[in-house]
Computed example of a mutant assay.
Amino acid sequence: MTATDEEWFDEAAGPLVRPYAMTGGRTRSDTLGLDLITLVVAMQSVTDVDVEPEYAGILSACQHPTSVVEVAAKVDLPLQVVKVLLSDLISQRLIIFRSPAAPGAEPPSQHVLQAVLDGIRKL
């Protein structure tokens, strides 16, 4: 076996820490209502705080307002794991978030829906 074969094998093994270990076995973070498009932003730099590597990666990804789904893509972790970790960082006041505006109570009119449908059909 060559050195390149060993490197490939190590990469194929996957992460050393399983997602449930990163979250302490927690699978939900429903208390904050984080959505895929919720914007999050770090309040401090990674160099200013002493946190575990997974949290540090998320803080680095959130130096500018970023959606939850983009954070998950940047740190290469499952979305649900990122939501749990973000909830931890929010409770520690290291990250703040802004959820999207709630849709209006009144549904769109039939005329608007028909115009959208007609526009899609023209494509």
Score class of each variant (00 low, 15 high):
Leu85Gln: 02
Asp5Gly: 04
Ala101Thr: 03
Pro108His: 00
Leu85Pro: 00
Val41Met: 06
Val71Cys: 11
Ala12Ser: 12
Ile90Met: 09
Gly104Cys: 06
Val71Ile: 14
Lys122Phe: 05
Val81Gln: 10
Gln63Ser: 12
Gln80Leu: 13
Asp10Met: 05
Ser67Asp: 09
Lys122Ala: 15
Lys122Gly: 03
Pro19Thr: 11
Ile90Arg: 08
Pro15Ser: 13
Gln63Arg: 15
Ala56Arg: 07
Leu86Thr: 00
Gly14Glu: 05
Asp35Trp: 14
Met1Thr: 08
Arg26Val: 05
Gln110Ile: 02
Glu54Trp: 07
Arg93Asn: 10
Val68Leu: 05
Trp8Gly: 01
Gln80Tyr: 09
Glu7Gln: 10
Thr4Trp: 09
Ala101Asp: 09
Leu77Cys: 02
Leu77Met: 15
Thr4Arg: 12
Asp30Met: 06
Val116His: 06
Gln44Asn: 01
Leu79Ile: 14
Gln92Ser: 09
Thr47Asp: 13
Thr47Gly: 02
Ala72Trp: 06
Glu70Trp: 01
Ala56Gly: 10
Leu36His: 07
Thr2Ala: 10
Glu7Val: 11
Leu117Met: 04
Val84Arg: 02
Glu7Asn: 06
Val69Asn: 04
Ser87Phe: 00
Arg26Ile: 02
Leu32Gly: 01
Ser45Lys: 11
Thr47Phe: 08
Asp35Phe: 14
Tyr20Lys: 07
Ser67Arg: 14
Leu59Gln: 01
Leu32Lys: 06
Met22Lys: 12
Leu117Ser: 13
Thr31Arg: 14
Ala101Ile: 07
Gly104Ile: 04
Glu7Met: 08
Lys122Pro: 00
Leu117Ala: 15
Ser67Pro: 02
Thr2Ser: 15
Arg93Gln: 09
Ser45Gly: 11
His64Pro: 00
Thr4Pro: 00
Glu106Arg: 15
Leu34Trp: 05
Gly104Phe: 10
Ala56Met: 02
Asp76Asn: 08
Met43Pro: 01
Ala73Lys: 10
Arg18Met: 13
Ala73Thr: 03
Glu106Ala: 15
Ile95Arg: 05
Arg18Asp: 11
Asp88Met: 03
Ala73Gly: 03
Asp10Arg: 15
Ala105Tyr: 01
Gly33Met: 06
Ile37Gly: 01
Ala105Thr: 02
Phe97Leu: 05
Arg93Glu: 12
Met1Asn: 05
Pro100Asn: 07
Gly104Ala: 14
Asp10Ala: 12
Gly104Asp: 14
Ala13Thr: 03
Thr38Cys: 00
Asp30Ser: 11
Phe9Asp: 00
Lys83Glu: 12
Gln92Tyr: 15
Thr23Asn: 03
Leu34Ser: 04
Leu117Asp: 13
Val51Glu: 13
Gln92Glu: 15
Thr2Cys: 04
Lys122Glu: 15
Arg93Phe: 12
Val84Asp: 07
Leu86Gln: 00
Gln110Trp: 06
Met43Ser: 04
Ala12Gln: 08
Leu85Ala: 01
